[in-house]
Simulated assay, not measured.
Amino acid sequence: MTTTQFYTWQSYPCAYDCHHPPTAPPQGSPLLLIHPIGVGLSRQFWQRFLNTWYQQGHRQTIYNPDLLGCGESAMPRLAYHPDDWAAQLEYFVKTVIQEPVVIVAQGALAPVALACVARFPDLIRGMVWSGPPAWRLITTPTPSRQQNIAWNLFDTPLGAAFYRYARREAFLRSFSQRQLFAQEADIDQEWLEQLHQGSRDLNSRHAVFSFLSGFWRQDYGKAIASIPCPTLVLFGEEASSVTRGYVENADQRLAAYLDHLPQGQGRKIPGRNVLPYESTAVFVEVVGDFIKNIKNL
């Protein structure tokens, strides 16, 4: 069993775990996982991926951190922006990992990966984006005034009451069915227990409300078009948007990203929006092939 480790960033204790291949020495650039933000989500999201990665014989070391505000990391009352988490990861890569990495980011945390590229491009060998936002969504900014109004509303007793409601099992199951999973049967007790445990600390709401306030909503078109490393974009065949008004099917999303990524590759695989969890084996296989084909990895 892997032991949780900690480092200190800007006086905050930050948690992570480090995984090595069980039967052979590590080989290749390590992976840096970026978990999604949501009620109860943390680095535990990647457990199925981690197990399957080594079962399929891959030998990279994997670093799996909790972003600030999530899991076992500190949960200060802050309005988190993508660059805040990227600054945390920059420190983590430079002081803990100390070598170039391949970033694997889930969902709407793609902007955090982009902020990492802006901060430490020489330490990123490649990236994998699992189910990033619809192209129109990731290139349409939300006015900062609107973001701040939303945050100020969430950062009230009313917001805390809503979070208590949102972490109930009935709500989590319903949301997962409506927005995340392709098959209702895949919403198992392991998933629900993970969310339950991750949301027990009411302070975990700050990261979630920062996400819901839309601080990540900027126009990333130019940043995407200037990514200097190979980037794999994966979408579920039944991909959907959790934001109203942004209707793009998986083919449209994939085509839009590939039209703009300088070294982009893309695939559709079975599933909807949480591919590392609902379609783990296929996801690992495709990511593994991508990494094998990147030069110097």
Results as ranks from 00 to 15, higher is better:
M127C: 14
A105N: 05
V117A: 15
A113M: 08
A115D: 13
A113F: 01
A113P: 10
V104E: 05
P111Q: 07
V104W: 06
V112W: 00
I124N: 05
V117K: 06
A118C: 14
L123D: 12
M127T: 10
A105M: 04
L123R: 08
L109E: 15
V102W: 06
L109M: 15
P121D: 04
G126I: 02
V117I: 14
G107A: 12
L114R: 04
V128A: 06
M127V: 12
A118Y: 09
F120C: 14
G126K: 03
P111V: 13
A108H: 12
A115E: 15
A118S: 15
I124C: 07
A105K: 01
P111T: 09
A118M: 13
G107P: 05
E99P: 00
P111G: 03
V117L: 14
V112Q: 04
L109W: 06
A110L: 13
V102Y: 13
A113Y: 01
I97K: 02
G107I: 02
I103M: 07
E99R: 06
E99Q: 13
V104N: 09
P121M: 09
R125L: 07
V104D: 08
C116A: 12
V112K: 00
V104F: 08
I124L: 14
V96H: 00
L123M: 14
G107F: 11
R125P: 00
G107Y: 05
V117W: 10
M127W: 03
V128S: 00
L114C: 09
A113C: 10
G126N: 10
Q98P: 03
L109G: 09
M127P: 07
A113T: 12
L109C: 15
L114S: 06
I124Y: 07
M127D: 12
E99I: 01
I103D: 04
R125S: 05
R119P: 12
D122N: 14
L114I: 15
P121Q: 09
I103P: 04
R125I: 00
P100Y: 04
L109K: 14
V101H: 02
I103T: 10
C116D: 09
M127F: 09
V112A: 03
Q98Y: 02
D122S: 12
P111K: 08
A105Y: 03
I103V: 15
V96M: 04
Q98I: 12
A105D: 02
M127A: 15
G126V: 06
F120R: 13
L109H: 08
A110Y: 00
P100H: 06
P100N: 07
R125K: 13
L123T: 00
V96Y: 03
E99M: 09
V112P: 02
R125G: 02
I103E: 07
Q98E: 11
A108Q: 13
P121H: 03
P121A: 00
